[in-house]
Design a protein around this nucleic acid. Structure first.
Length: 668
DNA sequence: TGGGGTGATATTTTT
DNA sequence: TATCACCCCA
């Protein structure tokens, strides 16, 4: 407690009612949350069992957990829930599944599964899957806003596209239930629905969670806010921490107005502002404050810092986008030599992922190690999806999506015709594909050979499922991979043995994760538990760059939220790019300004903006103007630089080599 | 069954 | 312009 400032202390100690902590960038909010948990346990005698802290990302949850582990003995942490919203939702559904029409072992569909399903439904209903992702987006938006298919249809007001989407929404939900499956949005939405209608269930969870903390509160959507409201009930024992200036996810349903809404819904709400920043030099904060001052505010806030004033901010004006990348990289390199720092002290932040390419190239040419965050998820690999589909089917034989994925992977000589007939039969009988395969009537529509193959498959599946229920789930999974000769199949299908090897490596990785998770969950863990937990995990692609740890970080402004770097380059700071043109059309400049604000406040010591005067867009060379946001920064703290002549590629190579030699010298 | 040709598309993304 | 998803074919 002694290392907290007075405001932070107040936020930690205040437990008399609902509390909103407005935590500016770099004001130590995670410290406050963890300290508060310690305070609740040690000073207020609250059992860990009765405390829940919610985050949006697994990363944030992990971070909080590990910080807490440093400050609180294990016995105090028993039963404490520090998890993402979605994991809490999963826990609730696991306990209450019967009330919302789910059977144990229900599947969780990720965005990819959902897209597949929606395309399938669209092909069936409108013979065509045009704009499937738009539909997917719309349905998710409705779910986030707590709008039912019926309401959606009413609100569509005859607009054909909206009507179609709402009809699809209805069919989609129905199908998901038939498959005994939920999507990510349902993990929050179904508990909310449940709590609206089942007071006993709500009471149980209110009794269980007696103090609730929520991180990044400005990112909550309507459904998540409702869940928070329900859980805290009239008691209102909660602390939410957020910053309206860092709300950059409104486009995916977040409602920053939930911050202001709190004071309406909880009359006794106390608000504490954390305005002392421990991260950035004075100049950087001054610029950030001035920029964000152009946005309207419900809560006024002014960050200050005791760190020095720091260097002026720079703006590099490059001739074109290649030149921009060159300039940024050569300045980064020069600065690193001069300061003797590490590559990991630097970050390059951009608005859109496509902007990374040029910087990657420039960094590679100069032999600078870098890592790009936001790679493909481990679970996107087809081999991982395959095995996961097997596991899903194993614990949930209603999951037709998984059935279709798995039935011919590897080949079982069950072709599209057989499947189609099976599907037709299943629909007629109102049962799942798996169940249909057992039915005797099947012989009337399918030749004996096909029926036998299907039976063989489902019987094998049932056998495995039995084993999984009785024995060690992990062993069953291993034997499953063995039974289907997956490795053989990978070798057959990949034209290059290296790819097959890599894919099998991913399968082993998956098994290893399952093993680790089984260990973590303890003896009682069923395969179903493991599978659903896995689906919510965030294992990222392991690329070679990540192995080295001294790397320049490349990421989008969105991905940078919550991070900090001694030296930040914000690139492509031009009109049409930041603010992005589509936000201009939609009159969303304020969110773009917050995005710029997030970028600026990532920097600790130096901040450099860059822009190109001309840039090719969609194959056409366009003139670019400096972002309006640059004009909103304090003029005296900004140094504009031309950027000099472009360096020719050969010289760049030379420079890279020289740099490498230099590194070697330093090592010797 | 994967690769090559074709045509649509071009912000941000977590769970 | 570059990428990506999809369709068709060998």
């Amino acid at each position: 407690m002694s290392n907290l400032n007075p405001r932070q202390k107040e936020a930690v100690r205040y437990i008399d009612g609902p509390l909103l902590v407005l935590a500016g960038a770099g004001s130590g909010k995670t410290r406050v949350i963890t300290q508060k948990i310690v305070h609740l346990v040690k000073r207020c005698d609250l059992k860990g069992f009765h405390i829940a802290a919610l985050t949006f990302t697994n990363k944030a949850a992990r971070e909080m957990q590990s910080r807490l582990a440093d400050q609180l003995e294990a016995k105090y942490r028993r039963g404490m829930r520090i998890s993402t919203f979605h994991n809490l939702g999963l826990n609730i559904l696991k306990r209450e599944h019967s009330h919302v029409g789910l059977k144990p072992g229900f599947s969780i569909y990720d965005a990819q599964d959902v897209q597949q399903l929606i395309k399938e439904l669209m092909r069936r209903a409108f013979d065509g899957d045009d704009q499937a992702s738009e539909m997917q987006w719309q349905i998710s938006a409705w779910k986030n806003d707590r709008i039912s298919p019926g309401q959606a249809q009413l609100e569509a007001n005859g607009d054909p596209k909206q009507v179609a989407a709402s009809v699809l929404y209805e069919a989609y939900n129905r199908t998901l239930r038939a498959y005994n499956a939920v999507d990510f949005d349902d993990l929050i939405g179904l508990p909310v629905e449940l709590f609206e209608t089942q007071p006993e269930a709500l009471e149980h969870w209110q009794n269980r969670i007696r103090y609730l903390l929520v991180d990044e509160y400005q990112d909550t959507n309507a459904t998540q806010y409702r869940l928070v409201q329900q859980l805290v009930g009239v008691r209102g024992a909660f602390t939410v921490v957020g910053d309206d200036d860092q709300s950059i996810y409104a486009w995916r349903g977040a409602q920053p107005e939930n911050l202001a809404l709190l004071s309406e819904d909880f009359a006794t709400l106390k608000v504490i502002k954390l305005e002392q920043n421990y991260r950035s030099a004075g100049r950087i904060l001054k610029a950030a404050n001035k920029l964000i001052g152009n946005n309207p505010h419900v809560f006024e806030k002014r960050l200050w810092s005791e760190l020095g004033y720091g260097d002026p901010l720079k703006v590099i004006q490059a001739k074109n986008e290649d030149h921009e990348a060159e300039q940024v990289v050569s300045r980064l390199l020069a600065h690193k030599f001069q300061s003797g720092g590490r590559f990991s002290d630097y970050a390059i932040l951009y608005r859109g992922n496509h902007q990374s390419r040029l910087f990657e190239r420039a960094l590679r040419e100069s032999q600078i190690p870098y890592k790009i965050s936001g790679g493909t998820s481990f679970f996107a690999y087809q081999e991982v999806k395959d095995i996961m589909a097997y596991l899903r089917l194993l614990v949930n034989d209603d999951d037709d999506n998984a059935f279709v994925r798995v039935i011919n992977t590897p080949r079982r000589e069950i072709g599209p015709t057989t499947l189609e007939k099976l599907a037709g039969y299943a629909t007629g009988r109102g049962v799942s594909l798996c169940a249909a395969a057992y039915e005797l009537g099947l012989e009337t529509v399918l030749p004996e050979r096909a029926v036998n193959r299907l039976r063989e498959f489902v019987e094998w599946l049932a056998d495995k499922s039995d084993q999984a229920q009785r024995g060690d789930p992990l062993e069953v999974v291993k034997s499953l991979v063995n039974d289907i000769r997956y490795e053989e199949w990978l070798l057959d299908t990949a034209n290059d043995p290296k790819t097959a090897e890599r894919r099998m490596g991913n399968v082993h990785e998956l098994l290893a994760w399952l093993g680790r998770m089984a260990e973590q969950e303890g003896d009682g863990a069923s395969l179903s538990d493991l599978v659903s937990r896995m689906t919510l995990m965030d294992i990222l692609e392991r690329n070679e760059d990540e192995q080295r740890d001294d790397c320049v970080a490349l990421m989008t402004l969105h991905a940078a939220k919550g991070l900090e770097f001694p030296h930040v380059f914000m690139v492509g700071v031009e009109e049409q790019l930041l603010p992005h043109h589509s936000s201009l059309d939609e009159d969303n400049v304020e969110e773009e300004r917050r995005l710029a604000y997030v970028g600026i406040t990532r920097a600790q010591k130096t901040l450099t903006f860059s822009m190109a005067l001309r840039r090719r867009k969609h194959g056409e060379v366009m003139d670019c103007e400096p972002s309006r946001f640059l004009g909103e920064l304090p003029e005296d703290d900004l140094v504009w630089e031309g950027g000099g002549q472009p360096v020719d590629p050969e010289e760049r190579q030379e420079r890279g080599k020289a740099h490498l030699a230099n590194l070697k010298d330093m090592l010797n």
